[in-house]
C-alpha cells in the first residue's frame, strides 16, 4: 500500500530526484545507508534521477528533489534554477547545500590569487568567488543540516513528506542531546572547546559522546549567542586566532558563524 496514495498525490508513487552540486556525495549516499528501510523507500517512491544508484534517467518534473552541494560555479548557478523549476518540493541536505560547506572558506580569500598556484591551466577554471548555499539562489522548501546529514533525519524528512506532515527536526542546541545521552559536559568538566551550545542538534551529540568538542557540523541552532560562547572559550585560554578558526569549519558560511569568526579576524 502506498502511503503517498493515502494523501492523494497526483501519481500513485511520487518521483524522487537527487541532485549533486559542489559536495563530496556523502549526504546523498547516506540515503543508501538506510539499509533496513531501503525497500520500503523504493516501494513508496519512484527513483527518477539518482546517479549514485542508477544510470536510468527519467525526465522531470519531479515531486521530491533532494539537493546536495553548494553553488560554486556560474554553470551551477544556472543549473540550480533548472532543478528548482522541475521540482515540486525541494529539500537541501548537508552543510554544503545549506551553508556553503567547508569550501565556503574561499569566501574569506581571493580565489584569483590562489587558482594559478593550484591549477596548471587556470584558464580552464570557471568558478565563482564564493561558495553559497542553495537558498541563496532559489527558494528551498526544507533544509536538512549536517556534515554529513544524519540518515535517520533524512528518513524522517522523506517520511514526513510522504505523509503530508511537518518533519520533526529539532533546532535546539546539541547540549540537549548530550544531556539526554547522560554525557558529562566537556566544556564545564574539562575545559574542552565545544560548539555544542550554539550548534543545532541532530547528530545525537556524536563527537562529545566520544570526548571531542562539537565542531558545529549541523550549523547554528535557532537562537545563538556566539559572543557569549567566545567569551567563555577565551576565558579557558582560546586565542583570537583559534576563536576565528573554530567558527570556520564545515559551516563557515552560516551567517551567525561567519559573523562571529569575523569578529576575531584582525583583517576582516
Amino acid at each position: 500500500m502506498s502511503v503517498a496514495g493515502q494523501v492523494g498525490l497526483a501519481h500513485p508513487k511520487p518521483s524522487l530526484a537527487v541532485w549533486k552540486f559542489a559536495s563530496c556525495d556523502g549526504c546523498q549516499v547516506s540515503l543508501l545507508d538506510l539499509e533496513d528501510q531501503l525497500l520500503d523507500l523504493l516501494g513508496a517512491l519512484d527513483i527518477s534521477y539518482f546517479l549514485e544508484v542508477t544510470r536510468t534517467v527519467v525526465d522531470g518534473p519531479y515531486d521530491l528533489a533532494i539537493v546536495e552541494g553548494s553553488v560554486t560555479t556560474p554553470a551551477d548557478a544556472e543549473r540550480i534554477k533548472a532543478v528548482r523549476a522541475a521540482s515540486h518540493f525541494l529539500v537541501t541536505v548537508g552543510a554544503c547545500a545549506t551553508a556553503g560547506g567547508i569550501q565556503a572558506l574561499r569566501n574569506y580569500a581571493d580565489t584569483g590569487e590562489y587558482v594559478p598556484t593550484v591549477y596548471a591551466n587556470p584558464a580552464y577554471i570557471s568558478s565563482l568567488p564564493t561558495s553559497t548555499p542553495v537558498s541563496a539562489h532559489v527558494t528551498v522548501d526544507f533544509e536538512l543540516h549536517g556534515c554529513p546529514i544524519n540518515p535517520v533525519q533524512l528518513l524522517e524528512v522523506i517520511t514526513a513528506y510522504l505523509a503530508g506532515r511537518a518533519p520533526r527536526i529539532p533546532d535546539f542546541p546539541v547540549c540537549r542531546e548530550c544531556k539526554a545521552a547522560g554525557n558529562v559536559c566537556l566544556l564545564v568538566a574539562e575545559g574542552v572547546a565545544c560548539l555544542g551550545p550554539v550548534t543545532s542538534a541532530g547528530c545525537g551529540a556524536l563527537c562529545p559522546t566520544v570526548g571531542r568538542g562539537c565542531f558545529g557540523c549541523f550549523g547554528p541552532a535557532s537562537t545563538v549567542n556566539t559572543a557569549s560562547l567566545s567569551s567563555r572559550l577565551a576565558a579557558d585560554g582560546a586565542s583570537q586566532e583559534s576563536l576565528k578558526r573554530i567558527f570556520r569549519g564545515f559551516t563557515a558560511g552560516a551567517p551567525e558563524f561567519e559573523k562571529e569568526s569575523s569578529r576575531h579576524d584582525p583583517q576582516p
Binding site: A163, P173, R176, K179, C185, P197, V224
Partner: peptide
C-alpha cells in the same frame, strides 16, 4: 545566556516536555 537549555536539562524539577507524533 546561551539559551542552550543546560540549566533546564540538569534541573531536577524542570519537567517541560514536547508531545510529538511520528509516522
Amino acid at each position: 545566556c546561551l539559551v542552550c537549555g543546560n540549566c533546564t536539562a540538569v534541573c531536577p524539577t524542570c519537567f517541560c516536555s514536547n508531545f510529538e507524533d511520528r509516522t
